[in-house]
């Protein structure tokens, strides 16, 4: 079902798979370039990440040192703050603790009025 959905919608959706949350393997800046965030969105990204994890990131932070769950949260924030109109999140809740699952659900709800967000499990 999920594979079919992806095949049919690859060109329409920003696909974010928690099994491979980060594409680059260096500084946050490199990952940011993939998502086309505005300057305001970049600032919001750092603030939201700090609120969720109590961890300070800068654009030169090495994102490979984040925990698995923190990488998933960062991927979700990047997608939600990007200009993408359609986002597919795959397996994003699995590696999150209960508090972060609730926080991510709230974030997705907040952004759902502006865009089409689909959650699926592989």
């Amino acid at each position: 079902m999920t594979a079919t959905f992806i095949q049919e919608n690859t060109a329409r959706y920003l696909i974010c798979d928690a099994r491979q949350p980060l594409i680059t393997a260096s500084q946050l800046w490199d990952e940011l370039l993939l998502y086309n965030l505005s300057p305001e969105a970049r600032t919001e990204l750092l603030a939201e990440f700090r609120r969720l994890t109590a961890r300070e990131l800068t654009f030169s932070s090495d994102i490979t040192t984040l925990s698995g769950g923190q990488k998933v949260l960062l991927m979700c924030l990047l997608a939600l703050l990007s200009p993408a109109r359609n986002i597919l999140f795959m397996d994003v809740m699995h590696s999150l603790d209960p508090a972060n699952r609730a926080a991510l659900k709230e974030l997705i709800d907040r952004h759902s009025s502006l865009r089409n967000i689909v959650l699926k499990q592989s």
Binding site: L66, S67, G68, G69, Q70, L73, D97, A99, N100
Partner: peptide, 10 residues
């Protein structure tokens, strides 16, 4: 058992 970032994987 522990929250994200608490050091389980490490």
């Amino acid at each position: 058992q522990g929250n994200n970032g608490s050091g389980k994987s490490s």
